[in-house]
Design a protein around this nucleic acid. Structure first.
Lengths: 231, 231
DNA sequence: CAATGTAATTTTGAATTCATAATTAAGTCA
DNA sequence: TGACTTAATTATGAATTCAAAATTACATTG
């Protein structure tokens, strides 16, 4: 009856875990706006759950830095501030650099082909300026490298930090120039990965992250001067 | 009535946050044994709280990897396995290396003096073979460097991972030889920090972590063959 | 007596309830 | 009117309750 495999799939995660995922998505897609209060009751209604699992989820998100809990005042969606960006990207850079080194040691030929395929798809998205698709595939590439590093602790840490930056990265519509540079960097990433050149891949990824940092910071600064400073 | 100041002190963080701290301590000190079930009810009784905040705390600890939640089966204290150690220390190494580089850029002369003082105290603990004190001061030094790095994201990440390794590190009673080497490494750490030589401090910290990793792994392996393999 | 099935008990996950703190609205008085 | 109180409302934190799942204890059968 082919039950052996389904067992794993059927065992659904608990409600609070499901909620953590859903809320993460809402926050990343900025459907819950940064700086605003998390509407606990409304979300409970929306998902049809009671406050208990919702509050459990909020506590987990708070420890991940996606929301901030103020005693007796509820949960607030954290802002992506310039200071935070300047903090998180260097850490992410160090971790991605490590992932590059480890990936070069452990990646299989088949996995390199997978990344190559993703890279081609990403180039296509770039050609037609489909930012949405570009971001998605970009993420898949980084995740594939992370997977090849064979270190789940590293993966978890990276993805938690990525998550915090993602909304900023997504919102920070890349300029034409930055986008071109990013594509060039990815060419090198693929090249060094295929050559299994750990040190060069590491330093390329480090530089890649630093360029992303600078790009996001520039966007935040332009926004600061342009936008009305409410909130 | 001098209430103004006590207010702050009395006004403790929320219950679940307090519980996260308490449970972390219990787990690090192995008062909650690795591999065993977290006795939810007993802990609620012990701390005089209901299950709600206790369960919130357990969810946070689970996302930090200190406990594992099994749906409908409760929370279990995670084991420090050899695989996990081989995973976590490289990540910790990369992060500490970064903290060293950043610390060299930002540390003040006064802070270097503080580290120097801690270092002396640590040497005294080593002379009299007071492992308990040695570990405590050792941690304070690493924390001081982290603080000098001026990156709270980095601090949080480092400390979360450190926490997971700490019980292993503490239990892994160092051999005389390893202890001597560790002290030598710390001499270098102080030297490069005082000289504000980022790259050298980074690579020393990286090596320091790798040596710790090897030491803990050796202990886990010896334990595996010595101990009865129950659980 | 081992193996399987069934009932009793305990534990878990989540909803509900309740006391308290914070916010908003209404009222008071200069 | 406008600042300051005070009352009403709402939201939060945590205890309690309740249904469902898992575990244990027990019984039955081969």
């Amino acid at each position: 009856m082919y039950m052996t495999e389904t067992k794993q799939i059927i065992a659904r995660k608990s409600l609070h875990h499901e909620l953590v995922d859903r809320l993460q998505t809402l926050i990343i897609n900025a459907e819950l706006e940064p700086g605003t209060k998390v509407p606990e009751k409304a979300l409970c209604d929306q998902f049809g759950v009671s406050r208990t699992p919702m509050r459990e989820a909020l506590k987990v998100l708070a420890s991940d830095g996606l929301v901030r809990l103020e005693p007796n005042r509820g949960a607030w969606v954290t802002q992506v501030t310039e200071d935070e960006v300047e903090e998180v990207f260097p850490v992410l850079g160090a971790l991605e650099a490590l992932s590059g080194e480890l990936a070069c040691k452990n990646i299989t030929d088949a996995e390199i082909d997978d990344v190559r395929a993703l890279h081609s798809k990403m180039l296509e998205s770039y050609e037609v300026r489909d930012l949405d698709a570009y971001f998605t595939i970009n993420q898949q590439i980084h995740r594939a490298i992370l997977h090849a590093a064979r270190n789940s602790t590293l993966s978890t840490s990276c993805q938690a930090l990525s998550m915090r930056m993602q909304r900023a990265r997504y919102l920070a519509n890349m300029t034409e120039g930055r986008w071109y540079d990013a594509v060039q960097e990815h060419e090198k990433i693929l090249e060094y990965l295929a050559a299994r050149d750990g040190p060069k891949l590491a330093s390329t990824l480090l530089h890649h992250m630093d360029a992303k940092r600078a790009s996001v910071v520039r966007w935040l600064q332009s926004r600061k001067t342009t936008d009305d400073p409410e909130q």
